[in-house]
Write a protein that binds this DNA or RNA. Structure first.
Lengths: 150, 150
DNA sequence: TATGAGACCTGTAGTTAGTACAGGTTCAAG
DNA sequence: CTTGAACCTGTACTAACTACAGGTCTCATA
C-alpha cells in the first residue's frame, strides 16, 4: 500500500487540464513558456503531470483573461498572490484601474458607433454610385476626433 | 516653360505626407509593403515621391482605421472605390456590419465593467489580506459567462 | 507481451497592425 | 563642397495566442 510516488494525489496530463479549464493545450504550454504557469513535473517519457494547484492557478489566469486583464496584469496579480503578503487594497486598486480602462473603451466605442450610424443614415437612396460613406472617409475631419484608446 | 517632368504638380516626400495625414513614416511604408498604398515613383536616389492622390488615399485609410475598420475591411472598401463601379449599398452593408461589431463589443464591455465593479464592491474593508477579488478570480464560474468577442 | 490509436512532445512560423532600430545613402541649404 | 537632416532597406519586436510538421509516449485491448 505504501507507494513512493504521489499516486494518492489526483494528477492529470495536459489534455484533461485543458478540458477542465477551457484553455487550449497550446495555450497552456505557451503560459509555461512565458513563465506564468510553472513547469510541472514530467513522466519518464516527458509528458507533463499536473496537480490540483496547477488547475487552480490556470483557472485564475483564465478567469482574469476573461475579465480582460492582460497577461502582464495577471503576472502582477499572481505575484501578489504568490507573495501572500498582499493587501486587498492593492488588488482593489488594480481592478479599479482596469475597470476605468474598460469604461474609457466603452465611451470610445460609443462615439464610434454614433459616427458610423450617422454616416450610414446619409445614404438611403440605395444603389446610386455616389456614396456618402466613402465621401466621409475621404474627409480629413468630418467629425470631432474619435480617440480610440490603444 | 515647357518641362517634360510633372513639376507643375505638387509633390512631396514621405515626411510631409506623414505630417499631413498623421501616419507614421514607418506605417506608410508598411502600407505600401502590404499593398494597400501603391508604390509611388522615386527620385533618382530612391526617395519616394507622392502626389495629391496618395494623400487622398492615405487619408481614407487613416480615417477608416480611426473608425475601427480592419485593414482587411479597408482593402475591400478600396477595391470598391478603385473599381468605381461600386454601389452605395455595398458600402452601406459593410459599414452596418462593422457598426454591429462595435455594438456587440460595447455590450460585452458593459458586462465586464459590471462584473469588475461588483467584485470591487465586495472589498471595502481596506487592508485585510483576505481579498474577495482574488477569491472571485479563483472561482470557475462566479458570474454568468462573459462573452468577450474576439 | 505486442500493438496501434490517440495523446503528447518540441520547434517553428503565422496572425494583426504596426513600432523600433541599425547601418547606410541622398538631398538641399549654406 | 560640406554637413546634417531626411530618407532608404531589412530585420526584429510587440500581444496573446494558433497552427502546423514530424516525431515520441502511453495504455487499453488482443
Amino acid at each position: 500500500m505504501a507507494e513512493k510516488t504521489y499516486s494518492h494525489i489526483p494528477t492529470m496530463t495536459i489534455g484533461p487540464l485543458s478540458e477542465k479549464t477551457g484553455c487550449h493545450i497550446e495555450t497552456i504550454r505557451y503560459y509555461e513558456r512565458i513563465g506564468i504557469m510553472p513547469s510541472p513535473p514530467r513522466t519518464e517519457g516527458g509528458h507533463r503531470v499536473y496537480r490540483e494547484e496547477h488547475l487552480k492557478r490556470l483557472t485564475f489566469i483564465r478567469r482574469s483573461r476573461e475579465l480582460g486583464f492582460t497577461l502582464e496584469e495577471i503576472r502582477n496579480l499572481l505575484l501578489l498572490v504568490d507573495g501572500d503578503d498582499f493587501t486587498c487594497d492593492e488588488v482593489k486598486t488594480m481592478t479599479l484601474e482596469h475597470a476605468d480602462d474598460v469604461h474609457r473603451k466603452i465611451a470610445d466605442l460609443k462615439k464610434l458607433e454614433r459616427v458610423l450610424k450617422d454616416m450610414v443614415s446619409q445614404c438611403d437612396r440605395g444603389d446610386v454610385p455616389d456614396c456618402p460613406v466613402i465621401d466621409a472617409l475621404f474627409q480629413t475631419k468630418a467629425y470631432p476626433s474619435i480617440a480610440t484608446s490603444p
